[in-house]
Design a protein around this nucleic acid. Structure first.
Lengths: 189, 189
DNA sequence: CTCACACTGTGAATCGTTTCACATAAAAAG
DNA sequence: CTTTTTATGTGAAACGATTCACAGTGTGAG
């Protein structure tokens, strides 16, 4: 067995760290395309490079995102994502509330939703975040898709009707909470 | 065919509204325990009652929740969940930042994390929300579980090590965002 | 009354994901 | 050099969730 986990690491050690099975780790690394050796496991530096190459845009390229709806959540997300990934930046926010328009909020310029299509196209924005009230989410999504956005994170409760080739991540916090509350209630007190 | 969707509704109409298949709706209602009739579909009023009986505590009972970490996200969640479900209420928040201690923040009393165990036990809190920085999440989770919490919503990036009988909903926004960005990049430009 | 229709409830098939388990390989020990 | 050990990569099995498809049933039409 090689010394410590200095430069190399085994699948089962990685697995332990992230609470999954070793098989899962190996399977995932397979799709990432990096392969280790039975003798030393995975070369940490190279593995890391490989994962980053797989996951993020080539060095230098930057993906742009926009967020619609900057209520409590929108602003929290804005702060959360700002500076987290150098390769992804939220460059514009959209609102219908006229109070917030044309100001910089949480470090991000806020525009009227009507200008969204133009700005998305001009700036080449590919990722959209939707935190508007339920009723407006489809409307916003339609604008996003039409303007060329390729991936959407949707926090509204109603699943969006979206073309097949646009990726959507539906995040329904109310439902998640219902699940937690439900199971918390099931277990014997 | 019965008149309009006044008092009754068919699985395929429900399915359309929430963007799933009719079979899925019927399957779900099966587990909820309500059964309709081929003639009229589901009685909306009774269906609703049945779902609520399945999903929420009996009328009058209230589940209590606590949140640990009231940064931007914590506060947004606090506002988001307050008043959303009469049957679930966030009754306490915990922080390590001494600035925030012993004040009411977003309508919720903020305590030192050290008092968490006592307060959870005293008040019979069963649901915990964790929005603390990554490094502290396991520490908080251990306190929660030890104090008797039965369901946890975890927003920290590291999955928690938790006994089998406590339900955990892991919500990893950074990973969700990575997925969206990844797929947005894959599609042909 | 009988027939045709439309919908439900559910067993069986399908699909995507996770886990198992083993052939293979490289190092270390003898 | 040969044997033993331990880890990888991956085909195949297991699992969970979704979808198909159809028998059963009540209703309205004729």
């Amino acid at each position: 067995m090689p010394s410590g986990g200095e430069t190399h690491i085994y699948s089962h050690l990685l697995a332990e760290k992230v609470r999954v099975t070793a098989a899962q780790v190996r399977r995932d690394l397979m799709t990432v395309g990096y392969t280790g050796t039975p003798a030393h496991g995975y070369d940490i530096r190279k593995l890391r490079e490989q994962i980053e190459a797989f996951l993020f845009p080539k060095h230098g390229e930057q993906q742009k995102a926009a967020i619609a709806g900057i209520g409590n959540f929108g602003r929290a997300l804005l702060k959360f994502f700002s500076g987290r990934r150098p390769s992804l930046k939220i460059v514009a926010s959209f609102e219908s509330d006229t109070e917030k328009l044309d100001r910089v909020i949480c470090g991000c310029q806020c525009y009227s939703i009507e200008k969204a299509a133009d700005i998305i196209r001009e700036q080449g924005i590919t990722v959209g975040i939707i935190t508007v009230p339920d009723g407006e989410s489809q409307y916003v999504a339609d604008i996003f898709v039409e303007a060329g956005i390729r991936g959407i994170m949707n926090f509204a409760r109603t699943p969006l009707r979206i073309p097949e080739d646009v990726y959507v991540e539906e995040i329904d916090l109310a439902m998640s909470m219902d699940r937690v509350a439900y199971f918390a209630r099931q277990t014997v007190n």
